[in-house]
Amino acid sequence: MKFLVDAQLPRRLVVLLRKAGFDAIHTLDLALGNRTPDRVINELSIKEQRVVITKDSDFVDSYVVKQQPWKLLLISTGNIRNTELIALFVANIDKIAEGFKVFNFIEINQMSVVFHS
């Protein structure tokens, strides 16, 4: 599974995903960095079959209307510390990876992982 981590999320998330055996890149490492337009992120997601990980609800709108990006992981935790976010991923990465075998849109918050049809 391949992931594309959006700019507002920490690079440490990419490190964690790679250590867990996944292919992961951060939008800050793309040519336009934190100014990479959502359209470009969506196109890269589709081209490389990457799950976009984001807090940005614009991606939810795009997914619902256009089925873009390829797959979406929405982080709906509100503002939490990066250490708490990393801990959420450590606790749930296997569940998330399994979920993407069936679902294209998954949401994670402090209490649960939600699989959207």
Rank of each mutant, 00 (worst) to 15 (best):
K71D: 02
L73S: 07
Q49G: 03
A24S: 09
V51E: 08
L72R: 04
T77Q: 08
L85C: 09
D29Y: 07
K47N: 06
I80F: 10
K71A: 11
K55D: 05
I75V: 15
K71T: 02
L44M: 14
K71Q: 15
T36G: 03
K66P: 00
E43Q: 14
G33P: 01
N34S: 14
A87C: 04
A91K: 15
T27V: 15
A20F: 09
L88P: 01
I46L: 15
D56T: 02
I25N: 08
N79I: 11
L88Y: 14
D29Q: 12
L74P: 00
Q49E: 15
E84T: 12
R50A: 12
V64N: 09
D61V: 10
G78I: 04
N79W: 07
E48I: 00
L32Q: 03
I80N: 07
N34T: 02
L28Q: 10
I46S: 13
N92F: 02
I25T: 13
A87F: 06
I75R: 08
N82Y: 13
D23M: 10
T27H: 12
D38T: 01
L73Y: 04
T36P: 00
E48D: 14
I46Q: 15
A20H: 06
I53E: 04
Q68L: 03
S45F: 10
K71V: 01
I80H: 10
I25R: 11
N42Y: 08
R39F: 09
P69V: 01
T77K: 05
H26N: 07
V52H: 05
V40P: 01
R81M: 07
D61A: 14
K55N: 13
A31W: 04
S62R: 10
L74G: 03
V52F: 06
D58I: 00
K19H: 13
D61W: 11
A24Q: 09
W70F: 15
N42V: 07
I75P: 05
L32F: 02
L32W: 00
I25G: 04
G78C: 05
F59G: 01
I46Y: 13
R81D: 11
T27M: 10
Y63P: 00
S62L: 10
A24Y: 05
D58L: 02
L88I: 06
G78P: 03
V15R: 13
D29H: 13
F22T: 05
G78R: 06
S57I: 12
P69R: 01
T83F: 06
L85G: 08
A31M: 07
Q49I: 01
Q68C: 03
G78N: 06
L73R: 03
E43A: 15
L30K: 00
H26G: 05
D61S: 14
N92W: 03
R35L: 12
A24R: 11
F89A: 09
I86E: 06
R39K: 14
N42A: 13
L16R: 10
D38I: 00
T36D: 02
V51F: 04
K55I: 10
R50Q: 13
L16V: 02
V65F: 13
R81E: 12
S45T: 07
L30A: 00
R50I: 01
P69K: 01
T54W: 12
Q67H: 12
K66S: 11
